[in-house]
Each structure stands twice: as structure tokens, then as C-alpha cells.
Design a protein around this nucleic acid. Structure first.
Lengths: 207, 207
DNA sequence: TTAGCCTTGTGAATTCTTTCACAATATAGG
DNA sequence: CCTATATTGTGAAAGAATTCACAAGGCTAA
């Protein structure tokens, strides 16, 4: 398979959302033109992206909504469930536990961790909060595949090191910190301050 | 000024964070090599990015940490404060109110809105929650420049329309919805499900 | 069946981004 | 002052992503 760029993966996610809506609306097919329109892209871009994974359109007609949706789900790994642990039950962590979209796409939160003795052992939205001290053991025992980090910035690296030690290969980090991981681990950091900085740049420079 | 790409702005945010750390560590200068190393980029990339905005390094020596930090702050619009309103005091909204990084970079939350009658009028972390029905009036009266949307997906477009009507030019959206805004409004959507989908793609395809 | 449309899939062209490579210039030490 | 070393700033080269443009194929309706 040709190299799939970051931007292509990002767009696949967007196509997937459009297709979910289209399916609900009862549409049987969608053309690259329409898909592009909905996401403010070019039809050629859509076709190029999809062509990386094979050719599943019909000339003259477009793509089967259901079929294309299934295919993208398969590409993105959404046609299965993932065992997720969330570390840090503060404001952000707490919001993420309730975030419906995760479960909808098959990301099932199985474990919650915190380091605060007052939280450990308590029930939070149906989950027992576990001690971050037992992280390595518990992640392994529960075959966690994916971890979400929502701890304060100054604890993030230490926690990530434990997560890596437990053999987890994929980490989504919400701590505003510069985390280092070995090459074989895939880390994505979401920094909300960076997003808002982009907006202020736009306000200052573009508008 | 030459066109500044999305990726460049994103990297400027990252440089800014490194420089904050460097300044605290008491470093007076930093070279493009060191800055690149810390962010896993190439020195040429760093220099190209900075050169878009002028030349403020010294050959043979590097960049003055304090000076460069100030300069990037100015470019990104962080050398001032912004008046921010947050709409939707649910799980995500609530987390964002407490998110320290915003205030640290000068994004000051001035108003909170919700549509839930049980929340309106109540105090939330020191803010009076206002009625989303009065959005247009209150945003104008309080000279809000930047709005953060954290309402459920199905209400997002309606709320954004009001925000645009109030003359706000910059919107940060956390609702998992496809929002449309006029060309003169700058919208950024953070979709946490998309971020985690990237991780599952990596797990399925790359690792 | 044929004419008229429409839409995919994809090489080629174009545009955008990153990296290279080096002249220009600063510092440090003798 | 001179030499060795470091580092910027930037055209040019290379590489990546996007868009163009069109042949190939399929649908509809008479």
C-alpha cells in the first residue's frame, strides 16, 4: 500500500462522519463531488484519498454509502472495539469519560486511574477509580490497547513511561506537556491552548 | 508578508512553549538546532519558519530566548488578552472553564452560557451562567472577541449562527458537528473522536 | 441500440512544504 | 589580528500533496 499521509487519515475520519449522516438520511449512493462539497474539499481530493485503498466506486454513479462507510471503518479500525484506559480523573478526564463519541466508534473505556487518594476506590460514573500506582499491572491484566492521558502536565511523562512499560502502543495525550515515547509507540497530543492560539493568530493577521 | 501555512502557525505555538521553558531555565540564547531537537524538527525548518516574520537571530550565536519569545507572542497575538465566552456548561465546557492554559496565554473567559433552565442563573466556578437566549445581546455588550462552543452536536449550528450574528470572528468548536460559517469568520473544530481514530488507524496499519 | 450524461480512477501538471547547502557573519582564544 | 568554530538567513533542490484533465465505464431514456 502507498504511504498514507496524516492529512488523508484525518480526511477519512471526516468522510466517515458524512457517510454516517448520509446513511441515516437513507441515501444509497454518494458522488465524490457531493462528499467534497460537504467537507469543503475538491472531488479529486476525495477520489485520490479513496483510491489509495482500492477502487470501490462505480463510474457514472458514485460510491455506495453503506459499502464505503464499512470500508472506511475497516481502514480506520472502527469495525471492532478497543479496550481503553483513562488516566487522570480531573476536569478533562471527567469530561472524556462522558464523551459519547468514543463509545460510539468502539473505544470502550474499561479502566479509570488517578493518583489522588481521595478519589481512589471511589465510583465515578459507574467506574471504580484505580490507583495509578498499579498502572502497569492493571493495564496488562486488562489487556488495554489504548490509553488516554488527562493528568497534570508535570506528571504526564512519568505516567506515560509506565504506560509504555505496560506494552501499550497507542496514547492520546491531553496534558499540555512535551512527552517522549519510543519509536514503536504512537502518541498524539491534543493541546487545546494551541488550537485557540491558531484563532488569535487568525484574528491578528488574517481578518 | 508571505503566506503563513497552517503547519507553520502550529509550529510557532510549539516554539513558544519551548521558549517559555527555556526562559524559566534561565537560558539566554537558543540555536535553531536546539529548538529543532526539542520538537523533533530540522534546524532548517525552524529557521525557515522564523524567517517568514523577519530575521531576529544572530549568526554564530542563535536567537535571544526572551526576544524570540516576545516576537512569537506578538505574531500569535499572545501579547495581549482576549475576551472569551464559553457556550455550553456540560462536561466539556466545565473542563474548559478550569483549563489553566487558556488564562495563561491571555484567553480570559468572561461569560458562560447554557440553555438549561436549571443551570441558568447559577454560579459555576465563579461565573454566573447566562441564558443562551440572550447570546447576541450579551456577546455584543461584553465585546466578546472569541467564542468556545461546547454544546451538544445537534444544537451547535444554531448557536454558531447566533455567535456570528453577534459579530464574533473567531470560534473554537468542540461539538462533534459539521458547522458552516461565512468566509469572514474563522472556525476551528476540535473533534476528539477524530484524534483517537488516528490512533486506531496507526494500530491497525502501522504497528 | 444509440445518444447524452454523469462519475470514477489516475497519470501528469501544478502548487505547496521541507530540506539542502553555503555565503555571510558573529564569537572565542591565542 | 588571525584562525577555528558556530550559526543564521535564504536561494535552489527535492519531496509531498493537491488539482487538473481525460479516458474508461456505466446509467437513462427514447
Amino acid at each position: 500500500m502507498k504511504k498514507v499521509s496524516e492529512s488523508t487519515v484525518r480526511r477519512l475520519s471526516r468522510y466517515y462522519r458524512v457517510l454516517q449522516v448520509m446513511e441515516k438520511e437513507g441515501e444509497a449512493t454518494i458522488s465524490s463531488r457531493e462528499l467534497a462539497q460537504r467537507e469543503k474539499l475538491t472531488p479529486a481530493q476525495v477520489r485520490k484519498d479513496l483510491s489509495l485503498f482500492g477502487s470501490f466506486g462505480t463510474r457514472g454513479l458514485g460510491y455506495g454509502v453503506k459499502e464505503l462507510k464499512e470500508r472506511i471503518a475497516q481502514i480506520l479500525g472502527l469495525n471492532r472495539t478497543w479496550r481503553v484506559a483513562l488516566i487522570g480523573v480531573g476536569n478533562v478526564g471527567s469530561a472524556l469519560v462522558s464523551y459519547k463519541e468514543f463509545a460510539k466508534q468502539g473505544f470502550l473505556i474499561k479502566l479509570l486511574f488517578d493518583s489522588d487518594q481521595r478519589k481512589i476506590g471511589k465510583n465515578h460514573k459507574g467506574f471504580l477509580i484505580k490507583d495509578v500506582g498499579d498502572l502497569v499491572r492493571d493495564l496488562k491484566e486488562n489487556q488495554i490497547e489504548l490509553v488516554i492521558i488527562a493528568v497534570p502536565a508535570d506528571q504526564a511523562q512519568k505516567v506515560v513511561d509506565q504506560v509504555v512499560k505496560a506494552g501499550v502502543k497507542s496514547i492520546l495525550n491531553f496534558a499540555p506537556a512535551n512527552i517522549k515515547v519510543p519509536d514503536h509507540v504512537f502518541l498524539r497530543t491534543v493541546n487545546m491552548a494551541m488550537e485557540i492560539e491558531h484563532l488569535s493568530f487568525a484574528l491578528v493577521n488574517l481578518i
